[in-house]
Each structure stands twice: as C-alpha cells, then as structure tokens.
Design a binder for these strands. Structure first.
Ligand SMILES: [Mn+2]
Ligand SMILES: [Mn+2]
Ligand SMILES: [Zn+2]
Ligand SMILES: [Zn+2]
Lengths: 140, 140
DNA sequence: CTCTAATTGAAAATTATCTTCAATACAGTC
DNA sequence: GACTGTATTGAAGATAATTTTCAATTAGAG
C-alpha cells in the first residue's frame, strides 16, 4: 500500500505535524501493515529505510498516530503492546494468533448490549473495545 | 466476600497447588475485589496481611490464577495491566474509568457477528475479548 | 515427625517505556 | 535559494514493569 503511506502523511501534515524523515520511515512500515507490530519490530523495519532512526521516535510517532486515530493498539497476552494501521474510524480487530495478521471490522452491533447493561448496572458506557483472536485462512 | 476467598483456596487446592501463606494473602485481597488492581497494588494490600510477602510471588500467583480462569486481566490505556476476580467462566468487564470498579457480565451476544466474520474473512475465531469503559453510578 | 518437592523472596537481569537536553531539520518567509 | 524560529530528533540515562536465578523455607503426604 504505497498509497496508504501518502494518506497517513497527508493526515499528519494537515494537523500541523512536520513530515520528517524519521516519521516517514515509521509511516511507511505501518502502511504496509496487515500485521500488528510492536515498537521494537517497527523500529527494526523502519531502520531499513532510515538507519539513523531512534527507537524513541518510534514511540513518539506511535503516540501521535494513536491520538489521531490512524493506528490502533493491539493487546496481547504476552509481551508488549502492538500497533496496527486502522483505516476506518472506530473499529475492532480480528487477530491471527499464528502470524499476527489483522483483519479490521467495524460492525460490532453492541448497541443493544450497552443499553441493557446501562439499565442493569447504572454505568454510563463511554467507550468499548473488542478484539477477536483466531487463525487466518493461510495459517489454518 | 470472605466466602469467595475460600472458593479460591479450594480451587487451588483441588488443582494440586500448595496453599501457602503468601498465596493466601494474595487471594484474600483479590477476593475483596470489586476493583481492578495492578500487581503493585495487590502487593501493597497483601503485605498488610502477610508482611514478608515478595512482589515476585504476587506475579507468580496472578499467573496461576489467570491460567485457571479465576481472575482476568484488565487492559488499560496507560500503566501496567490490572487484574480482577472473575466469578463466571468466560466473561467481560465494564470498568469504571474513575474509580476502577469492575462489573462483570457474560451475555455478550456476539455469536452472530462471529458467524458473519468467519464467512467474510475465512478466519477461525477461537476466542474474543470485550471490555467496556465508562463511569459507575457513584462516580457520575 | 520426617521427608521431599513445590514454593518463596532477595537480588540481579531483562524488557518496556519515558525524560532530558543539546543538536538538527522542517516549513515557512524573504 | 538562503534565513530563521520552532518542532523534532536521538543518545544517554532514568524509571517502570516483569522475569530469572538460586539458596532457604515450608506445605502436606506418608
Ligand atoms: Mn493490554
Ligand atoms: Mn463473550
Ligand atoms: Zn495467520
Ligand atoms: Zn466509579
């Protein structure tokens, strides 16, 4: 997805962030992403593009991108958090346990569940967060 | 919930784990739990019961309890992971952003969503994982 | 009460993430 | 294209979170 990199870049520029070489390298890696990657993995791949890159910059860039909603954090049972490109606004992930490939989807149909829970518990539900784990067609 | 502590203890004993004083202290803290707590918080509270307790033992005990399914990990945006007593088998959490109180629920009605996704993506969905964030009645 | 394997905790090692700060590079402006 | 002020960078070191190691201790079976 060479195009997606440009979308990411444009989005950053629009919001007044400078489009630096280190950031471009990180964006390029994320734009490829059908898989979730943790900061160290992103760092390694991005250094192939821009060798002077520092790991700190990866963390900082990820933070900005999550903030803006261009990528999403993926929670796993072991190790650190991963990140994946998120094309739609609010969405969820279907993560392959084997190879890490991520399929995004946004129709989660939880409205009804929320309504009932709010009635039953008195909680005001502000956000939610759904992740499915499985095996992709290739890994089966 | 003094009773719940006994349930936890029984469950561990049944599975052949020794019921040591350090473990009992951790269980006692978790059995109270309407709130999620991270390892450091659990450690602090459990030391009030058994001062010689080591933080390592908290980590090890949590690992066992998650494995068995007696507690569940709670993922948060910042800081480390938290844990909460989980009474029903497979279930989900409604977490109060303000005070950390957790309401457990298990009727999540996602079967239909799964079926459609499996058809559409070819993934075999093996497990899932839903967390709602909001504000509890008290904190509103 | 004895014995042994499971468990513990102190310490040190790793891993994950954040802060600091001087040097640098982007994105205008001329 | 050179000039400039500000955002951004990366090295280094600090902190936070978690795991490993290992000798000492203890639960619980017999
Ligand atoms: Mn998490
Ligand atoms: Mn469910
Ligand atoms: Zn796969
Ligand atoms: Zn609350």
């Amino acid at each position: 997805m060479a195009l997606d990199k440009q979308i990411l870049e444009q989005e950053l520029r629009t919001r007044g962030y400078k489009l630096t070489r280190p950031r471009q390298a990180v964006l390029a890696v994320l734009a490829l992403g059908e898989e979730h990657m943790n900061p160290a993995e992103i760092y390694e791949r991005a250094r192939a593009i821009y060798p002077k890159l520092g790991l700190v910059t990866v963390y900082r860039t990820l933070e900005v991108l999550v903030e803006i909603g261009l990528i999403q954090r993926v929670h796993l049972d072991e190790g650190c958090h991963s990140y994946v490109r998120s094309r739609q606004g609010h969405s969820h992930q279907l993560v392959c346990k084997e190879c890490g490939r991520v399929e995004e989807f946004s129709d989660c149909e939880l409205e009804e569940v929320f309504k009932q829970l709010t009635k039953k518990t008195g909680y005001a539900i502000e956000s939610h967060w759904l992740e499915l784990l499985g095996r992709c067609p290739t890994c089966r």
